[in-house]
Structures are given as C-alpha cells and as structure tokens.
C-alpha cells in the first residue's frame, strides 16, 4: 500500500510546524488521543495519507507504530510526552510549548491549533511524483481533498458541557501563560532598568541638573513644540525610533520631574505626544512589507511617512495641549 504525504500547518493562534507526515509500513497508524472518538483532524490525516486512524483512548497504540499523534492538550502533560518519544505531534488546541517536557518540543515535531483545513495533501512530494507518471494522482488528490471528514459520533449532553468548559478554561490558561511570559520577558526587565535610573536620579541629585533642562522644555508649550519638531526631523526620526527606547527613557525623565513638581501634571498629555513623533519611523519598510506592499509603495511610503510626521508631530502636541485643559 502506497502512503501519501500530508503537510500539517499550524492553525489560528497555533505554534510550530509545518509537519510533513508520511506513514510507512510500520508506522501506519494515526493515533487519536482526544478523550474518545476520532477527531476530524485525525480523520482527515488518515484519509489523505491512507493510514488508519485509531482511537488511542480506547485501544493502546505502541509509539513505534504511530505515523503521528493527534492530541487536544492544553499544555501540561501530553503536549510534551509524544515529542519526547519521537512521535510527530498534532495538537488541535492552540498551545505553545510548555509543561515539564517543554524542552523536547520543537517546530519539527510539534504543531498546534490545527483544524481539518490545515491538513494539506503534498503533491510535489517524491513518492507522489513517481506515481504521477502513470496514475496522475493530482486528480486523485482533488477528489480526496474536498471530502468532508466523517461525522463525529454524537456526544452526550454532559460530555459536550464538559468539553465546552474545558475549552474555555484552556483559553484562559493559555492567555495567562502568554501574559506572564510577556511580563517576565518584556515588562519586568524594562522596569528594572527604569527603577535603576530613577533611583540614581532621585538619590544622587543629578535630578536637579536634569530638571534645569527638562522643566523648561517639557513644562511649556513652546518647549514641547521644539522637542516634537526636532524628534520628527526626517534625518533624526528613523534613528530615534528603535524599540521606542529613547521615548521611554525621556518619558521616565519627564515623569520624574512631574513627580518632583518641576513640570505641571497637566503637561503629561502633550508631553506624551511631544516625545514620540518618531514612533515607528525606523520600521516603515518592515511594517509596509507586513501589509504586503509592493516595492514601489515602500519606496514612496518611507519619505511620505517621514515628511508627514514633520507636519503632524507638532500639530499632535497642540491638539493634546488643548485637550489637557481641566485634566488635573
């Protein structure tokens, strides 16, 4: 029996992959461990590859007979078990590598968030190319591809509620995991940096020197306009942009002076715009590429945005200044 290769891509919000799954004589089972029944994703992989889908929740399947395993793990145990055993793992929930076996999970053995439509028959694969000469499998593939997965066995009411609740909890759990990850990787390191700077400014008396520079600039409208004009200069703005580090550090300095009473608090609003007319000026070509812009659009877009900022930067400060009346 000739098996075909499928490509399994990550689904919405998923991670890893794409995996190429080709069953062999020995590894000829699509093990499905999703709490009973054959999941549509397992069904589709089985149909496209020609392998057999097995409900591994009921019948145990030795790891060495699995072409791949389909799981619905939200990110603790199963998610790492099969990658560790060397079995290609397709997770139908959008889970990121996590759990105690996280180290074994990588993009070559794990893909998550998979839905049936993310399973695609590979026509250019070598085995298929050989067959093509005689049997024209491309037509065969077209016949197979749109076939709808067989109806999933009906579930009892309680089971459906249980699965629904499980799904909601899994989403919150994943959201929490991403949040803590972001806080640890992005927010706390910058807090450490900021706290160190503020500590030095407050304790050493450097603050008095900085106040002499910052207060007249950030505490008056002409000063803020001057800052925004300079930061928006097309030769400067792309240099001031990266990571918004300059804006963040200047923001902290202005914040310290507001806290010490050297800059009136209602100037916080226009200051937020004055220190930041350069936002994203370093990123224009990348941002346009993400929006699938043509090279010519990028060529024109870069100077257009830079030039626009020179005009809109100071205007933004004036608008914010008008909106700051009655703020504090």
């Amino acid at each position: 029996m000739a098996y075909r290769t499928v490509k399994v891509e990550k689904g919405e919000g998923g991670w890893g992959g794409p995996l190429y799954i080709t069953p062999t004589e020995k590894r000829n089972k699509i093990a499905c461990i999703t709490g009973g029944g054959i999941h549509p994703v397992a069904q589709r992989i089985a149909e496209l590859t020609g392998a057999e889908a097995v409900d591994a929740f009921k019948t145990s399947v030795p790891a060495e007979e699995m072409a791949c395993v389909v799981i619905d793990c939200g990110g603790t145990a199963r998610v790492g078990v099969y990658p560790k055993m060397g079995v290609l793992t397709v997770d139908v929930t959008p889970t990121f590598p996590s759990g105690p076996l996280m180290a074994f999970i990588n993009e070559k053995n794990f893909v998550s968030g998979v839905k049936p439509k993310n399973v695609i028959l590979v026509e250019g694969s070598e085995e298929v190319a050989h067959e093509k000469i005689e049997t024209a499998p491309s037509r065969e593939a077209q016949v197979i591809a749109p076939s709808v997965p067989q109806e999933v066995p009906r579930r009892s009411f309680i089971e459906r509620i249980g699965r629904g609740m499980g799904g909601i909890v899994a989403i919150f759990y994943q959201a929490g995991r991403e949040t803590v990850d972001q806080v640890i990787r992005n927010i706390i390191p910058f807090m450490a940096f900021v706290s160190t700077i503020i500590g030095i400014i407050l304790y050493s008396g450097i603050g008095n020197v900085i106040a002499k520079i910052i207060a007249p600039l950030a505490g008056t409208l002409p000063g803020l306009l001057l800052i925004s004009l300079v930061c928006a200069l097309p030769v400067l703005s792309p240099l001031l942009g990266p990571g918004a580090v300059i804006a963040q550090v200047v923001g902290v300095l202005v914040g310290v002076e507001i806290g010490r009473g050297n800059v009136p608090p209602q100037f916080a609003l226009p200051a937020l715009f004055a220190i930041n007319p350069q936002v994203g000026c370093d990123f224009i070509p990348v941002g346009l590429t993400l929006g699938e812009a043509k090279p010519e659009t990028i060529e024109i877009g870069v100077p257009a945005v830079l030039f626009s900022r020179q005009i809109t930067g100071p205007i933004a400060v004036i608008i914010a200044y008008l909106f700051s009346f009655g703020l504090y």
């Binding site: 949040t179 972001q182 990571g243 923001g251 914040g255 507001i258 806290g259």
Partner: peptide
C-alpha cells in the same frame, strides 16, 4: 497588552502622576 515591550512610553510619565 497591545505593546507591553514599550509600556514605559506611557508608564514613565504616568508614574510621575502617580507619585503626586
């Protein structure tokens, strides 16, 4: 959540307001 890596553009100034 939209941009946690650049939080201090806002938070830098905001913590001055908090201080008051």
């Amino acid at each position: 959540h939209a941009n946690p890596a650049e939080l201090f553009v806002y938070m830098g100034i905001a913590q001055g307001i908090q201080k008051l």
